[in-house]
Amino acid sequence: MELLGLSPELLALFVVFGFMVGVFFGFFGMGGSFLVTPALLILGYSAPVAIGSSMAFVFGTAVIATMKHHDVGQVDYKLGALMFVGIALGIEAGKVLVYGLEAIGRAELVVGTAYVLLLAAIGALFVRSALKQSSDADNDDSDDDDIPEIAKTIKSYNIPPMVTLTDGSKASLWTISGVGGGVGIVSGFLGVGGGFIRMPAIYYLIGVPLAAAVGTSLFGALMSGAVGAFTYGLDGVVDLGIVTGLLAGSALGARIGSAATAYVDEADVTIYFGIMLLLASLAVGLGELANWLAMPVLDTVSFVLLVGSSAFVTVIIFYYGAQAVRTKDVGPTATAGGNE
């Protein structure tokens, strides 16, 4: 018996994995999509199917998240619309790259390797940030408003045409298109929403206030997901069964994850999330090694590592949340958009 073209066991696995991914997305505001493509690659799906299905999943998740942000009016739709052309062109370029690699039989290897590096880099950043937070707690003289030098330099180029944004500030259309296009290429190539690049870019390079940057980045993810799902859908490589299973789990997980932000101190959990991403990087690396050495057992180890580490962090978030509720450490003010 098959449901949505998948065996019941596989569908259940996608629902459970989607739930964990949703918890991370709701709690950390990121971390959803860049676990999905590697998981699908490890499960043996081809790179186009993994990326296309992940993009459709990104679209669904972003629709839900943007609806939450829309309720509190923190989305600059004008800026989002201006980024659209760049996003669409970037995704097309990313897709051309994937199919070019697929034609020479190297897509899974290159995309997998890119994920090993990406997950390791983001994981290291999270671990570093967690360790810095704990040392800042002892020596509280940090400056959260530090803007990287490169961002200041790029922002200083006011190349016309300049565009007035919703909050009255001005930004170069070239910067906006560059941000959209650059993130679009990453999205189209890896099947991710790209929020981990787009949000800082909107905040630092375009100069949108933080709360609106988060909402507008989600709207950007919505457009990336829609364009990506359509673009890969043209080739019939999006598996709606996978997307439905993941979305069914993630929509619930995201609600619980964002509600948990009202109870759990992010600093307590950040290091576990960072370690999980490092383990995910190792898992993808083992998956690649399994193909290279023709050792299927490594595929199993890699899958257990990816799902196991995700499950561990989910349990940690729930544990801290339950502890806080029990001790009434924080009032039950949780909303569906706790981290907004």
């Binding site: 459709a56 679209f59 669904g60 998740t61 629709v63 839900i64 609806m67 829609a226 799902a229 359509f230 673009t231 859908g233 043209l234 080739d235 019939g236 999006v238 709606l240 997307v243 439905t244 979305l247 069914a248 929509a251 619930l252």
Partner: peptide, 21 residues
Amino acid sequence: SPAVQAALLVVAVLVEAIVLY
């Protein structure tokens, strides 16, 4: 046509997301 199928796919995911939300 592939374009119509792809558009229907996007609409299906959109409807799923709204219903789940």
